[in-house]
Design a binder for these strands. Structure first.
Lengths: 231, 231
DNA sequence: ATTGACGTACTTGTATGGCAATGGTACAAT
DNA sequence: ATTGTACCATTGCCATACAAGTACGTCAAT
């Protein structure tokens, strides 16, 4: 588990959370892998307390299983949960974009516009890490504009399931398409064109549709067995 | 703070959470009131650890504010957050009902049907507490049928904001109307009649619209001041 | 009366050590 | 092959302690 430096004013719990989330989404911590509070506390140079609190938090979105008296485990990829995360994101983001269209005349899109410009810059200079970060910021901005940041925060926990699956697929992301989507989406929202905005968003959210069956075939050990009707 | 008995196999943390949630929603713990981990641990007969974990969890939905080095506070009623909770519930529940309509032929509505029957029984016998519980179960059942229980759990945390405001209003709930809604909604979903189901749901979710301004006028100390444009 | 320095009490964040309960495992006994 | 048993690791929880930061009262200086 790669460990990077702790930020200056970051609490131990937030630090542990940041390390764990990154390692889980990047699949550095393998699905099914057992953890233990003691191991982690040694690895991160913290006590059990903040580690435990971080694991409990991750357990609430079921990205980690906390098994009393046995240990904690990186959850196997649960296709039902991945689908639910995708559902949640789609439903919420559509609703947010609709609201943003309605409120468009009263909203200040300068942050979003600056973001898109930066995206183009990073795209041309092949800084995909930065681009990914801007992508997240871009989508969050619409939640901020519509006063739905709390919703966004709940959503973020669930999208870990989806982000992790995306890490499994080695398919290159169509970065230029994504950036174009963002520009078009922003313009549509600014104009208050709800139909257009939703159409673009739908395409955009479907770009990352993955062939889960193929991935399941390639990495069966990472996946939770499908529910079978036990005879 | 009223304290009831701890269930047999309930963890200390879940017990603390249950007591806190109940007392917060019922307004027994007043908005703005300061708590402290030590006080609570004495009151509940637990140590700081499970209390602390419960407060952190409540802090994630912002029903409690955890202020480092100062204490924890029952959040003031934040109308923006109440509105956001209502938004979240409406958006999610509509999406769930739509899905349920689509899947209707493959779903087993027997649990929901039994629930509605029981609701009628409790309504006639004026057991409003039981009715409230059945109401929650009824709505959760559609999340279960569509495999969206994780979503429901996230939603449940946010609805505390709304439930608390409802406790403030002394207005009698139109219980018979609610029960009727449930019966009609279930039948519409069973028939797969999406338009009808959504129409009923919209009416149903609007029944509990409250006059927040009146309540704010009556209990100003419980409310977070509206964001003012500071001169 | 106002201001500023200082100390005190209290709070959360974290560390540390420990115990109870329980699932897992290895191994002996049958 | 099955069963019983001892042992180990783990989390849930407890108790205590300390660090760091906030609130508040006191008190002197102005």
């Amino acid at each position: 588990m790669t460990i990077t430096e702790r930020y200056a004013s970051e609490t131990a719990r937030d630090y542990a959370l940041r390390m764990l989330k990154r390692s889980i989404v990047s699949l550095e911590l393998k699905p099914g892998m057992m953890l233990s509070e003691n191991e982690l506390s040694v690895a991160l140079g913290l006590s059990r307390t903040p580690i435990r609190e971080a694991l409990i938090e991750l357990g609430k979105t079921r990205i980690v299983e906390v098994l009393p008296q046995r240990g904690s485990r990186i959850s196997l990829i649960d296709c039902d949960l991945v689908e639910e995360a995708r559902f949640l994101r789609t439903v919420l983001e559509k609703a947010i974009i609709e609201q943003a269209c309605e409120l468009a005349p009263t909203l200040d899109f300068s942050v979003a516009q600056a973001n898109v410009k930066l995206q183009k810059f990073y795209l041309e200079n092949h800084l995909l890490d930065k681009l990914m970060e801007l992508d997240n910021d871009f989508h969050r901005e619409f939640f901020r504009l519509t006063n739905r940041l709390q919703t966004q925060q709940l959503l973020a926990g669930m999208t870990l399931h989806f982000d992790r699956l995306r890490s499994l697929s080695l398919i290159d992301i169509d970065a230029s398409g994504i950036v174009k989507d963002h520009g078009l989406l922003l313009e549509a929202v600014r104009k208050g064109d709800k139909a257009e905005a939703l159409a673009i968003l739908t395409i955009h959210l479907n770009r990352s549709k993955l062939d889960e069956k193929t991935l399941r075939g390639r990495y069966p050990a990472y996946f939770k067995p499908e529910a079978e009707t036990c005879a």
